[in-house]
Amino acid sequence: MKSLRNFALLIFILAATTSFKYLGTAGKDDFYVIIDKSDYELKVYDAANNWLVTYPVVFGSKDLGDKLVEGDRKTPEGTFHIVAKRPHAKWERFLSIDYPNAESYQKFNERKAQGIIPANAKIGGSIGIHGTWPHEEFAVDLYQNWTMGCVSTKNEYIDKLFDVLPVGTRVIIQR
């Protein structure tokens, strides 16, 4: 098992630093992702907590707070998992995460009960990690938040993440 992880680590490093495409079979627990909103960074770690690569990212709103309601353009915070991967006509590739999950609903319902958000508010959905519009990767370089709550990075980086991270990979979004 350890040699398989070492092989997966080597393949990930090659995929992250070259145009090499990952051809192996990584398991959902071989990697995890931490997205730090305050640093505008997405970091990938292996199962042994070794840092592998960091990519710059941007979000929705300039307000980096936790997502409250549908349409607020904020990126949710918490622990999620990649639930689907697909090519995307506008943003290169799309790694869908399981927002809203049980943790998200719990925070949402507590905020409703406290009157922080309206009783008729909706939680939203369709959050993921994706690329940028064609020829607009400068938004990532300039830290221009433009999404509806998703995490966006350069297309070359989303291609590498798409090739390596399997469905089921844990994604932690924090501030």
Rank of each mutant, 00 (worst) to 15 (best):
V53M: 14
K37D: 07
Y45P: 08
L142H: 06
E137V: 02
N6A: 11
Y105V: 08
E136G: 03
W51C: 09
E136L: 09
F31G: 00
Y40M: 10
K43T: 15
S126C: 07
K21A: 15
I129W: 03
G149V: 01
P100S: 03
N49K: 13
K122T: 10
E110T: 05
D159Y: 08
T153P: 08
I158H: 00
V33Y: 08
N120K: 14
I129N: 02
L142D: 08
V164M: 07
H88W: 11
K160F: 02
Q114L: 11
G168A: 03
E156M: 09
K160H: 05
I173T: 04
K85E: 03
F138C: 03
G115Y: 04
Y143P: 00
I129V: 11
G24Q: 04
N49M: 03
S19P: 10
P134D: 05
Y32F: 14
Q174G: 08
Y45R: 04
A113L: 11
G128V: 05
P118M: 05
V167D: 00
V69M: 06
K122P: 02
W146Q: 04
D46T: 00
I127Q: 07
A119W: 01
I82Q: 04
M148N: 12
C150S: 00
V83S: 10
T169C: 09
F108W: 01
R5Y: 13
T169K: 06
Y40P: 02
L142W: 06
G131D: 07
E70I: 00
G60N: 07
S38C: 10
T75S: 07
E70L: 07
A16K: 12
P134Q: 07
A48W: 10
F162A: 02
F7C: 13
E92W: 12
E103R: 11
K2G: 14
D29L: 10
L9G: 11
V53P: 09
A139M: 13
E110N: 12
K43Y: 01
S61K: 12
L161K: 01
Y143S: 12
Q144R: 14
G65A: 10
L161Y: 02
H135K: 14
A119R: 10
V83T: 12
F162E: 05
K2V: 13
K62L: 13
A139W: 12
R5A: 11
H130G: 06
D46C: 07
W146V: 04
R73K: 14
V33M: 05
G60V: 00
N6D: 15
L4M: 14
L64S: 01
V164G: 05
K37P: 02
G65Q: 04
I116T: 11
E103C: 05
M148I: 09
V83I: 12
P118L: 06
T153D: 08
D29W: 08
V151R: 00
E92Q: 13
G125K: 00
S96W: 08
L68M: 12
E110V: 04
A89F: 13
P87T: 08
L161H: 00
